[in-house]
Amino acid sequence: MIVDKITVLRQAFPYLLQGAGMTIRLTFFAVMIGIAIGTILGLARVSRNKLFKGLAKAYIEFFRGTPLLIQLFLLYYGLPNLGIDIQSHVAAILGLGLNSGAYVGEIVRSGINAIDTGQMEAARSLGMSYPQAMKYVILPQAIKQVVPPLGNEFIALLKDSSLVSVIAVRDLTRQGRLIISRTYESFLIFTAVAALYFVMTFIMTRLVNYAERRLNVGD
């Protein structure tokens, strides 16, 4: 019995690794999208322009107030009804990235607001414009504030990426389910899947901690 389970696991492992590779790629591109969107949203949320602030708030409220799974369904199953067909992995990356952008936006906003207002006043008194003061004075200091929560957000994003398995993306979770459909070894395969997720999140946690220590050097 044990030998049979080891054989099943050994045969399944290459496919699980392929799924883990897909999960990492999806998370990487979603993180890039999330950072880009979140930075824009965070800056809009602290701007003096009421239109930008209102649009950013509406975006954040929508994506934080609706389930990620429904957002994925809208992209993959809903857009074709409007004549827009996208591949499953593209829908997965967009869904994860757009959702993450809302959370990153709030993280960036809180990081900027954590900087003493005197910093902006001092920069403006030196003749800097508002964008210059934000770029050269506020944002460099805010980065140190946002690294820990950003790390937590990206770790959560990696785990949430398991939801893309429902739109036929062959990530780690879907690969596990496909193997189970052939072997009926639910406990064994899902344990292996959980172990691989743990390894990925453990490595990401260590990378975030390293980045945090590097940014704190000289404080």
Rank of each mutant, 00 (worst) to 15 (best):
V3I: 11
V8L: 05
L16C: 06
L17P: 03
G19I: 01
G19L: 03
M22N: 00
T23N: 08
L26M: 14
T27L: 03
F28T: 14
F29C: 02
A30S: 15
G34R: 02
I35F: 11
I35R: 01
G38C: 08
I40K: 07
L41Q: 02
L41H: 04
L43A: 13
S47F: 03
S47T: 07
S47M: 09
K53H: 09
K53Q: 13
G54H: 09
K57L: 11
K57Y: 12
Y59A: 04
F63E: 01
G65E: 06
P67R: 12
P67A: 13
L69P: 01
L74W: 12
Y76Q: 02
Y76D: 02
G78A: 03
P80C: 05
I86T: 05
S88V: 06
H89Y: 11
A92G: 07
G95R: 01
S100V: 13
Y103G: 00
V104W: 05
I107S: 03
R109A: 02
D116V: 11
M120P: 04
A123G: 08
R124P: 01
S125L: 08
S125G: 11
G127Y: 07
G127N: 10
M128N: 03
M128Q: 06
Y130A: 06
P131H: 05
A133G: 15
M134A: 09
M134N: 06
K135R: 15
Y136V: 06
L139C: 08
Q141T: 10
A142I: 03
K144E: 06
K144Y: 05
K144D: 06
Q145E: 14
N152I: 10
A156I: 14
L157G: 05
L158W: 05
D160C: 03
S162K: 09
S165L: 02
S165G: 04
V166S: 12
V166L: 10
V166Q: 10
A168S: 15
L172V: 08
G176R: 01
L178F: 12
S181P: 04
T183Y: 02
I189Q: 01
L207Y: 02
L207V: 14
V208I: 12
N209I: 12
A211N: 02
N216T: 07
